[in-house]
C-alpha cells in the first residue's frame, strides 16, 4: 500500500503531471480546453467526495451545495467587497469547511440513509435560499461580471491560464488528500465505512472522524466553487442543483471509490466525455446518465477502475 510498489506509482504520477502540464502547448482548441477545465473542476469535487463517500461511506447528496457556497462566497466577495482572488479563494474554502462542520456535527450519529436525506434537504435549502434571497444573491439571475483573477499580479485571462490555475488547485487537492489518507486518518475513515461499531472498539472516535472526512471533502468543494466563479464569471443557483450532486456521485462510482485516488478522476473523464459525445442528443442526457449509473452498479459495483467496493 504505502511502501514497495510506491516508487513506480510516483513515477507514473510524475509522468502524468508532466503530460498534463504540456497539454496547452499541444492543444489550442478553446473548446477542448474548456472541457478540460470543467474536468479539472469536477476532479477537485470528486476527490473531495471520494473522501466522504469512497472512504467514509457517507452518501452526501448535498455536495453541490458546498460547491455553491464556495462559488457564491468568491462571487460576492470579489464583486461587492473588492476582494482579490487569493483571499476570496481562501475565504470560500474556509466557509465551505465551516458549513461542512456545522452540518456534520448534528448528523454524526444518524444512520447512513438518514444522513443521505439530510444532505439532500440541505442542498435543496441552499438552492432555494440562493434563488429567493434576491438582495444578496440576485436570485435566479445569478451574480455576473465576476472580475478577472490575478495571482501575484499575473492576470488569469485565457483558457490556458485557467487551465494552469485549475491544475495547480487539483494537484494541491490530490497531494493533500493523498497525504491524509496514507496515514491512520485515512484508515480510520475506511474502518468507519466497513464497520462503524468495530471501528469504535479500535479506539476510533467515529463521530470526530466522520465530521473530519465530511468537512475536508466540503473544503475542496468550496475551492472548486471558487475556481468556477472566476472561470465562468457568472454563478447562478442552477449551477448547484441536486443533479450536480448526483453527477459527482456517478463520476466517483463509475471511476471507482476508495484508496485509488486516480480512479474517481478516471470517472470524471469518462462521464465528461460521455456527456460531451451525447450532447447532440441532449434530450436523452438523463436517460443515458441513469442507465450508465444502473449498469455500472449492477455489473461492476467497484467502478471501472476501482479494486474494492462496498460489495460484501
Amino acid at each position: 500500500m504505502m511502501m514497495g510498489s510506491g516508487k513506480r506509482k510516483w513515477l507514473l504520477l510524475g509522468g502524468l503531471t508532466i503530460c498534463l502540464l504540456l497539454v496547452p502547448m499541444l492543444v489550442t482548441d478553446i473548446y477542448i480546453l474548456s472541457i478540460l477545465n470543467m474536468m479539472i473542476i469536477y476532479s477537485i469535487l470528486c476527490l473531495g467526495l471520494n473522501l466522504i463517500l469512497g472512504f467514509t461511506g457517507l452518501l452526501s447528496l448535498g455536495h453541490a451545495a458546498f460547491y455553491g457556497i464556495g462559488a457564491y462566497t468568491t462571487a460576492i466577495l470579489m464583486t461587492r467587497y473588492n476582494f482579490g482572488f487569493g483571499s476570496a479563494f481562501f475565504a470560500s474554502a474556509v466557509l465551505a469547511l465551516l458549513v461542512g462542520i456545522i452540518i456534520a456535527i448534528p448528523t454524526r450519529k444518524v444512520r447512513g440513509d438518514y444522513f443521505c436525506l439530510i444532505t439532500l434537504a440541505f442542498g435543496e435549502i441552499f438552492r432555494l435560499v440562493a434563488t429567493a434571497w434576491i438582495e444578496f444573491t440576485r436570485g435566479a439571475m445569478g451574480i455576473v461580471r465576476i472580475p478577472m483573477p490575478k495571482i501575484f499580479g499575473i492576470p488569469i485571462a485565457t483558457e490556458t491560464d485557467f487551465y494552469y490555475l485549475g491544475l495547480g488547485i487539483l494537484i494541491f487537492t490530490y497531494l493533500t488528500i493523498k497525504a491524509i489518507t496514507d496515514t491512520r486518518y485515512g484508515r480510520a475513515f475506511i474502518a468507519i465505512r466497513e464497520d462503524e461499531l468495530a471501528a469504535d472498539t479500535m479506539g476510533i472516535n467515529t463521530a470526530i472522524y466522520k465530521i473530519m472526512a465530511f468537512s475536508i471533502g466540503c473544503l475542496f468543494a468550496g475551492m472548486a466553487g471558487s475556481f468556477l466563479a472566476v472561470y465562468q464569471t457568472v454563478v447562478t443557483p442552477s449551477n448547484f442543483r441536486l443533479e450536480e450532486s448526483c453527477l459527482m456521485i456517478i463520476m466517483v462510482i463509475v471511476g471507482g471509490m476508495g484508496r485509488n485516488l486516480l480512479a474517481p478522476l478516471a470517472g470524471v473523464v469518462v462521464m465528461t466525455v460521455a456527456t460531451e459525445v451525447f450532447r447532440s442528443v441532449a434530450d436523452y442526457r438523463m436517460l443515458i446518465i441513469g442507465l450508465i449509473m444502473i449498469l455500472v452498479l449492477l455489473l461492476r459495483p467497484q467502478g471501472i477502475f476501482g479494486s474494492s467496493s462496498f460489495k460484501s
Binding site: G290, I294, S309, F310, S312
Partner: peptide, 11 residues
C-alpha cells in the same frame, strides 16, 4: 451495501 441500492434507485 445499502448505499449501492440507493444510488441505483437514483439512476
Amino acid at each position: 451495501h445499502r448505499l449501492i441500492s440507493m444510488i441505483t434507485a437514483l439512476g
